[in-house]
Amino acid sequence: MLTIFNERAKKVKSSPLKLVFNRISLVLSFIFSINLISIVYLNQCAKLVNYQYKSCQLREIKDTLERQNNILQVKEENLSNFERIEKLAKVKLGMVMPVNRIVLNLSSSVLQASRVPYFALDKFSKR
């Protein structure tokens, strides 16, 4: 009986230390996991902000490209204006205004019977 009591007494004497040790390690691991979660969370937030900044940059690039596209469109329309084309045709290519025009008045029955030059039909297409 006394032996058991002594053993129990020994156990009681040693358990406060262990208890304290357990409690300390619990607190420490809790603090550690909180820190770990915080670090991971902050890292993700930082990544998110980074991606958002990149997306802003890409949007800027997209706007720039759109702007350049608009400028090119205006340039292209400018180059295709009739005055410039006529000048090029006359001066550089030596083209002249047509003197004669061929007028073909075709009925639908004639169209079925023979091949008709595309240009003639084009001239009579109504806008």
């Binding site: 004669n100 025009r101 073909l104």
Partner: peptide, 8 residues
């Protein structure tokens, strides 16, 4: 038109 080649 008198002939098919109408003059401008």
């Amino acid at each position: 038109i008198n002939n098919l080649r109408g003059k401008s």
